[in-house]
Simulated assay, not measured.
Amino acid sequence: MKTILLFFLCLVAQVSHAQTSPGRVISPGSGFDGGDGDGGSTCTTPSITNQPSSATITYGEDVEFKVIGSGNVSLIQWQEFNDDTWTSLSNGGIYSGVTSTTLTLLKPSFSLSGRKYRVVLTGCNTEVTSNGVATLTVNKADQIINWANPANITFGTALGADQLNATLTTGEGELTYNPPSGTILNAGQSTLRVDAAGTANFNAAFKEVSITVEDPLAIAKQPEDLTINYGERLSFSVEASGTEPFSYQWQLFINEFGFEDLAVDFEGGFSGSKTATLEFETPIVSNTGLRFRVRVNDANGREVISEPATVTVNPKEITASIIAQAKTYDGSTNAEAKGSVPTEDLISGDVVNVSVENAAFAEANVGTWI
């Protein structure tokens, strides 16, 4: 019973030594035995069945190198090859697990690309070294630029921080804009570009967005003063420039209220009060002096108001026909006469009366001569 107990205690001591001994961490599945043959156990020289493999990553990713084998291992040491020299690694910085069966590099930089890694296993007074062909390849990462199409601007607005506001979701390169800040673009559609400079760990990148430069809303052609004769049709028009579509609202100046919007169907004979052309069907002489203007809005809700235009309505001249009644001489020169106006000279709905007063025949022409 005593012998069995001593053997058990010895076995426990060996297991504890394998788990806590400095210089080695045996990962599950690695195949190695933490025992080193002390205490009378049989020592099996370490051997490597699966060599550490090369790895290719993109900057920003972690990488692991693993070794799998069998035998008793008392010491594990990972090494890095650089400048023709194998150097034993220490835990710290990007390195961890340098004395375990798994070496981890946290986000190795592009500058480490091409480095080789190997592991030295010590056991049974023997060193076994991996083949040293496990090579790390680190590719530069792509920079990701976050930049949405800027809001429309009006012609004459210089590019600034509101438009040139790209950010890097991934990356660290300096941003350069083309065209640069302060540029005034032509009206219409334009392309903006930002370049992210390449760095030690990131590739160069660029992104393009579109911006619309709107024409400023303006009255390109003002309504003009008009002079017409009574009976003629009145027509005011306006031309606007800017971002279409446009909306229009004609206004009439009313003494007590200033300029007031004209209704769509105005009883006074107006039409087109919400178009670019306002028409007045039958202005009369008393309409002389009326003033009209128009409010114009563009697609973005901006508004501009035209200069007022004034109308002058002149009276219409009408030639009346006067016909004297046939008269037999009776010693009087008085005559009866009737006047009339040609129908084609009248405006629909108008009534023109022609009166003749004190009509008389010349005495020499009075009567009927036989």
Rank of each mutant, 00 (worst) to 15 (best):
G132K: 12
K140D: 00
N149G: 02
P179I: 12
T87H: 10
T135V: 13
S74V: 06
I48K: 03
P179Y: 07
L106H: 13
V119E: 00
I153D: 02
E174N: 14
T126A: 08
V138Q: 04
N165I: 07
G71V: 01
V67N: 03
T58S: 12
G173E: 04
Y117M: 14
T45L: 00
N152T: 09
N165R: 04
G132S: 07
T176N: 11
N50E: 13
W78L: 03
T126G: 01
T135G: 01
K140L: 11
V120N: 13
T49K: 10
L106T: 15
T176I: 13
G114R: 13
T126K: 12
N149R: 05
P108S: 12
Y177T: 13
T85C: 08
T157C: 01
S74R: 07
S70N: 06
G160P: 00
L75N: 05
K107R: 15
N165T: 04
T49H: 07
T104S: 10
A141S: 12
S47I: 06
F81H: 15
G97K: 10
S47E: 05
G114M: 11
P46A: 00
L105G: 06
P179Q: 09
N152I: 04
F65G: 05
G123T: 05
S53V: 09
N125D: 11
I153P: 02
G173P: 10
